[in-house]
Computed example of a mutant assay.
Amino acid sequence: MKLGYTIIYVADVPQTVTFYETAFGLKCRFLHDSQTYAEMETGATALAFAALDAIELNGLAVSPNSAKSLAAAWEICLVTEGVASAYQTALDAGCSPVVPPSEKPWGQTVAYVRDLNGCLVELATPIT
């Protein structure tokens, strides 16, 4: 087994793609003609977004992400050498601050923001 991709269900896939391009510098790998599914360039494992309607099509029931409620108990982590500048860029693009950059006892610098959908995003230096 290997992790193929992570899908985040969102209200507006194209808006989320544009937001991630601006806030985190990611590039869109694929956006379906239906505008209900997209993948971002994130290396070997893709970060994908799917429309909330796809939840029912897949026979699932979930609690949608919301910027107005407490963050769900998961996060995505984007790795960068420049956490402080990535954090500021994310804030400038409209992310909500959660935890500003700080150095962890193991030497890694980490910060947290929430995206336009209320999803928790960790910005972190590589673990050495």
Rank of each mutant, 00 (worst) to 15 (best):
E81K: 05
E21C: 01
L31N: 02
I127H: 12
A38G: 08
G43V: 05
F24D: 11
Y9Q: 07
R29L: 13
D53V: 08
S96Q: 15
D33F: 06
V79H: 13
T125Q: 06
F49S: 05
A23S: 08
V62C: 10
N117H: 10
P100Q: 11
F24E: 09
T6N: 05
S102W: 02
L26S: 11
D12H: 12
S69M: 12
T128W: 08
A11M: 04
T36C: 14
S63N: 11
K27R: 15
E39R: 14
P14C: 09
G82N: 09
G59N: 12
K2L: 12
Y9E: 09
L52A: 06
A72P: 09
S69Q: 14
I8V: 00
V99P: 00
A46M: 11
D115E: 07
Y9D: 07
C119L: 11
S96G: 03
E81N: 06
L3D: 03
L70A: 07
M40P: 15
G118M: 08
A124S: 10
L116N: 14
V99C: 04
F24N: 09
L78I: 06
T89N: 15
Y5P: 02
G43Y: 12
W74I: 00
I127S: 07
L78D: 05
Y5K: 10
A86I: 01
F24L: 10
E122M: 07
F19S: 00
P64M: 10
C28M: 08
H32N: 11
Q35W: 08
R29G: 01
Q35T: 06
M1N: 09
W106Q: 05
F19T: 02
N117Q: 14
Y87I: 01
G118C: 03
E122Y: 00
A67T: 01
A73Y: 09
E56P: 02
T89S: 13
T128Y: 13
M40W: 15
D33M: 04
R29E: 15
K2G: 00
K2Q: 14
K27A: 14
I127Y: 15
G43T: 05
G107S: 04
F49R: 12
A50T: 01
L60D: 14
N117E: 15
N117I: 02
Q88C: 08
P97Q: 06
A90H: 13
T6S: 04
L52G: 04
T125M: 04
L116G: 00
W106A: 03
D92I: 00
W106V: 00
M40G: 13
A46W: 13
K104L: 06
A44L: 12
Y20C: 01
A11E: 15
L91C: 08
I7Q: 05
A51T: 02
A111M: 08
N117V: 03
D92M: 02
V13D: 04
N65G: 01
A72N: 09
E122L: 05
C119V: 14
L70Y: 05
A54T: 09
V98Q: 13
P97K: 05
S96N: 11
H32K: 12
A90L: 12
P101C: 01
